[in-house]
Design a protein around this nucleic acid. Structure first.
Lengths: 246, 246
DNA sequence: CCCGCCATTTACTCAGACAAATTGCCACAT
DNA sequence: ATGTGGCAATTTGTCTGAGTAAATGGCGGG
């Protein structure tokens, strides 16, 4: 079995270089649990041989993984997978890699929990700071969502645009930097939903309520509406039936 | 002027390798604004010569920066600094680099805004999920803070431990993954505070109120107490007097 | 039983060459 | 004049092989 197959492409669609695709392969193996924290990754010579690439390319891949907190390389010790508490879980690529394989339901709940916290607050902030331009973009995304539905790629993109625009409207760079990660989560989990047959519930009403609150500059109502939206989205996601912790 | 000076050490204290210290040098130049988005970074041959290292080491440094969303390298085009919206601002290292030079006051406000949102909610969640062990750790950090005060390194470490333990008590891996970044922000901004003379206000009361609410499993009160704590911390930070946006 | 030296293993750095990709120019046809 | 195809130059990407530096674990001496 060859570890890689053809020119891998990232979510954005851009072709990945050799080092990038190797980082992706190993990264997925790590976040999916196929390699566990504390495990060693094998020497550079043997690993690069296993991937049929030069040590240079393999080392650059390791650098990428180390930059995302997934591994830790030291002479004489080897390249060890870091404990999960070290992982940069909100890194867009790490998040995307998690959705490449069926993600742990527990982890999915945690992600929705954080989204509920951050995006609700973001909706409230956006209600206060939004410009007419933001409002126009939100309306555009909403229209596109309604036109294409979440069953199409264009519809899912519009959904992501809606959430992305809302985060951008906060004018808070740190909140904006979560956009890519949130989009990855939305895109992937929406695909999950559709997998078990088409969605029966119409997701538009709660989206419209968020928009209306933001348009009315009603921060409190925007927060509540977004909180509700995310609770509903979690309910629609199949693995949400898994046990809650404790 | 030589671009690097001696064996650079990251916040954690571990000695940095060549590629790591170069990534740090360039990374600081980027987040501090000395290089601006859209700028090119110069060819690999000339850049590696400027740092007096091999192309290999320089390229690995670029891979690190690219993994954090700071730059984007393409053949024939060069290595271009990405727009700030692409930066992984919550990456612990990026955050630490931002505090290496005086950070933009506007950005500092944004960071406090996000901390207020996330840490308040985290306090509420922690109030529901905390175990006796978490409580013991919180108490330990509190005692250490009181004993050493924020004027000492040990006291600042205790402060960071308090916030870290609280985030850990949420049992939410995504929230936990923010710990390192939050610590970097706390450590650096606390040093700023002290710079203009010793702090006159005692930060212990609001910390104790958070602890008591978490101990009492009172989520609502924990949220409010943490929100208050962060507002006070922002007030103590010198640049907080800078204009709010718009 | 503890402490410091030393050998070994591993990642790290270097140098030089060649390959691949992307751009922009330029000739050519329309 | 304008669009279109391919060619050439530039830059990052990949490969090879060699040598360096760091961290560990054992060994010997205290």
């Amino acid at each position: 079995m060859s570890p890689r197959s053809g020119p891998a492409r990232r979510a954005g669609g851009k072709a990945l270089r050799l080092h990038g695709s190797i980082a992706r392969t190993i990264g997925i193996a790590i976040v999916s649990g196929r390699h566990r924290p504390g495990d060693l990754l094998g020497g550079e010579i043997s690993s690069s041989a296993r991937f049929a690439v030069s040590r240079t390319a393999y080392r650059e891949a390791v650098r990428i993984l180390a930059a995302k907190g997934l591994v830790n390389a030291r002479p004489k010790v080897g390249t060890r997978i870091s404990p999960r508490s070290e992982w940069h879980l909100l890194d867009p690529e790490v998040l995307a890699w998690m959705f490449e394989s069926e993600p742990d339901p527990e982890l999915l709940n945690s992600l929705f929990e954080l989204r509920r916290v951050v995006e609700s607050a973001a909706a409230g902030i956006a209600a206060r700071r939004r410009t007419p331009a933001h409002l126009r973009d939100l309306r555009g995304a909403l229209d596109a969502m309604a036109a294409h539905t979440l069953a199409t790629e264009a519809g899912r993109q519009a959904d992501m645009d809606f959430h992305g625009t809302l985060l951008r409207a906060t004018e808070n760079p740190f909140i904006v930097s979560l956009t890519k990660g949130v989009s990855a989560a939305i895109g992937a989990s929406t695909v999950f939903k559709q997998r078990k047959g088409p969605l029966d519930r119409d997701p538009m009403p709660e989206h419209r309520r968020v928009y209306q609150a933001v348009a009315a500059r009603d921060a409190r109502r925007a927060e509540r509406a977004m909180s509700e939206l995310i609770v509903l989205a979690r309910r629609d996601t199949p693995s949400s039936r898994a046990r809650r912790r404790r």
